[in-house]
Computed example of a mutant assay.
Amino acid sequence: MKNYLNLLFLGLGVCSCSFLPQKSFQEEFSDLEEMVDRLEDQGAFMSQSLDSLAHFYEDQIARFDSLLTFADYDKYLIEGPFSTATPGLDSTKSSIIILNTTSDREQALQEVAATNFLDVHFAQFVKRNELVAQVYSNSALQVSRVYPCYDHKNIVDPNIDVTQFNFYYAANEINNPNKGLVWIPDAYVDPAGRGWIVSLVHPIYKDNSLFAVLGVDFTVDDVIYTYLQDYDGEYLLVNAKGDIVAGKAGAIETISMPPLKNHVYRETVKSENFRVSDFNLFQSRSKEVRKMAQEFLLNKKKVFEFNEEKNLKVALCLPFEEIDWYMIQIIPNS
Rank of each mutant, 00 (worst) to 15 (best):
V135I: 07
K300H: 07
W325I: 09
A192P: 06
F19L: 12
E288Y: 02
N311A: 09
N100G: 02
V182R: 01
E111K: 12
V14W: 09
E308H: 12
W183C: 05
L118F: 07
E295S: 08
N100L: 01
L298W: 12
L89K: 14
K270H: 06
K270Y: 06
D151N: 15
N172F: 12
Q107C: 12
Y73A: 08
V162H: 08
Y265E: 01
K313S: 06
A62G: 08
E173N: 03
G215T: 05
F125N: 04
R63V: 13
T84Q: 06
A315K: 02
R63K: 14
V216D: 04
S52C: 12
A246L: 04
D37C: 11
A249P: 10
T92V: 03
Y169R: 09
K287C: 11
F296N: 00
P81K: 07
K241C: 05
K206N: 07
I96T: 03
F218G: 00
M1C: 10
F64M: 03
L7E: 15
E308C: 13
Q329D: 02
A140V: 10
G250L: 04
S95E: 04
S277G: 14
L12C: 08
T163Q: 02
D65T: 11
D243G: 01
K2P: 05
K179W: 06
E28R: 15
L318D: 01
R194M: 13
F117Y: 13
L214I: 09
N6E: 07
L39C: 05
Q42F: 12
N311H: 14
L99Y: 15
L181C: 04
D74K: 15
K179H: 08
Y57P: 01
G195K: 00
M257T: 02
E173V: 01
D104A: 07
F218D: 00
N116T: 05
E33V: 09
G11E: 09
E322M: 14
E58H: 02
D157I: 04
R145F: 06
S30E: 14
P158K: 02
N208L: 09
V14H: 12
A44E: 06
E234L: 15
A187E: 08
L67A: 09
T86A: 13
T254Q: 15
Y150S: 05
Q134V: 05
L53H: 05
A315G: 03
T226D: 14
V213G: 02
A123Y: 04
F9N: 06
L10G: 09
I155S: 01
N262H: 12
F122L: 04
D324E: 12
E322I: 15
F56K: 10
W196F: 15
K127C: 11
S144Y: 13
I330V: 03
P148V: 02
S49I: 08
S83Y: 14
Y265M: 00
E58M: 03
A171K: 03
V220L: 08
T163N: 05
G80E: 01
I184T: 03
A249W: 07
D104Q: 05
L118A: 06
K261C: 14
L68H: 09
F45C: 11
I61G: 07
